[in-house]
Design a protein around this nucleic acid. Structure first.
Lengths: 206, 206
DNA sequence: ACTTGACTACCTACCGAAAGGTAGGTAACG
DNA sequence: CGTTACCTACCTTTCGGTAGGTAGTCAAGT
């Protein structure tokens, strides 16, 4: 009762546990997407959330464990976005457009500053533990599977070339978007990524 | 005369100055391509080359200055490779294949471990100084210009679609290769990147 | 021919800051 | 009374970077 949080002026102990943990993950994700894993520290997290650095260890025993937890959450959230697209009755081409928009929005909603979480971590793969690296690979796998479905759908409904429904093409689409995000982030911004995605779809359609 | 280098058993002062500096850049490039900029330290460099950490500062005043010098060297070397491809009398499609091979070879010659130097640094862009960031952008610019030339050439000689000779398509090609390198490095290796590149060229050709 | 002084390429020893992480305590909740 | 969510205080290691010294090279001056 008498103890007041200096930051938000609400009684500390009335705040649900999950909030701080989720906030830490939010900040961690933000920082990794902007600066990269090795340019982010526990001090950055604790300062942003308003707790002490040591208290972060109450939620995550180590940095690698935190990244692992972050990847778990991210995989689930991204999986839901993929399912949402795949569950619609849109054409394959429209699905692919919506999928590309996920990447464009990452850039346009952040002042052209954020990369893909897994894209950043792919570059810093050797700083991850086995579980973290496996989750990054799981991200790649679930994405290519989703894209493959879209390509197959597009081949059936006539919105995309029928013969592009291959695993390799799905990998190519993912590579283009991940690379495009990386490139556009440090050069032409979301407009550039949007152009790249349009050109990609155009090639797969005609 | 009497003073002997512990490492190579050659008189220290008969060894040309440039060697140590170049060796440091070699090791730095290797480490950045494998682990990333922020996972590499001056101690890593000095240990690999066989001098003391403080002596690295004799060659490079700071870490950012070292990365800047590394990027300068890399830009020049990569520029020569691009010129070599563009100066040949091959078809546009063949040129594009050779260009893609530059990325595939990075992976296949390193046990699927190395990424593109500028690809890694694009992810860690905020850890660079202004000059370094400018050089990364110069890398992107010179690459897209080169690819654009290849696409134009391919449009003329009939080996590629005539209407793909746009800046946007060149950006797309670069994005696919940078992203493909990133993806293949942590999943399917050089074979996967080779497949992605083949599929890309196929789309641009037919 | 001999000395001088600038220069190069290292060295040892050290600095403050920041990193990830630990130990042990406290206050509220159920 | 145990659990949760924090705290202060402190640890070791590593980071980029600095100060100051030493041995050898080399060209100019006398």
């Amino acid at each position: 009762m008498g103890v007041i949080d200096r930051q938000c002026c609400l009684p500390i102990h009335t705040m649900p546990t999950q909030n701080t943990r989720e906030k830490l993950l939010d900040v961690a994700q933000e920082l990794i997407q902007r600066r990269g894993l090795n340019a982010m520290s526990f001090r950055d997290l604790s300062d942003s959330v308003g707790i002490r650095k040591a208290s972060v260890h109450h939620h995550f025993a180590s940095k690698t464990e935190m990244v692992d937890a972050l990847l778990g959450r991210y995989l689930q959230q991204f999986g839901e976005l993929l399912d949402e697209i795949l569950a619609s009755r849109a054409s394959g081409k429209t699905m692919l457009k919506r999928y590309c928009d996920l990447f464009v929005q990452t850039l346009s909603s952040s002042g052209n500053d954020k990369g893909c979480l897994c894209g950043m971590l792919m570059a810093e793969l050797l700083s991850l533990n086995d579980s973290g690296a496996a989750k990054v690979r799981a991200f790649l796998s679930s994405n290519t599977m989703a894209v493959e479905s879209m390509l197959a759908r597009g081949g059936e409904d006539g919105s995309l070339q029928p013969n592009v429904s291959t695993k390799v093409t799905a990998w190519m689409v993912l590579a283009t978007l991940e690379g495009g995000l990386l490139v556009a982030r440090c050069d032409g911004g979301h407009k550039q990524l949007s152009d790249i995605a349009s050109r990609l779809i155009q090639l797969l359609a005609k």
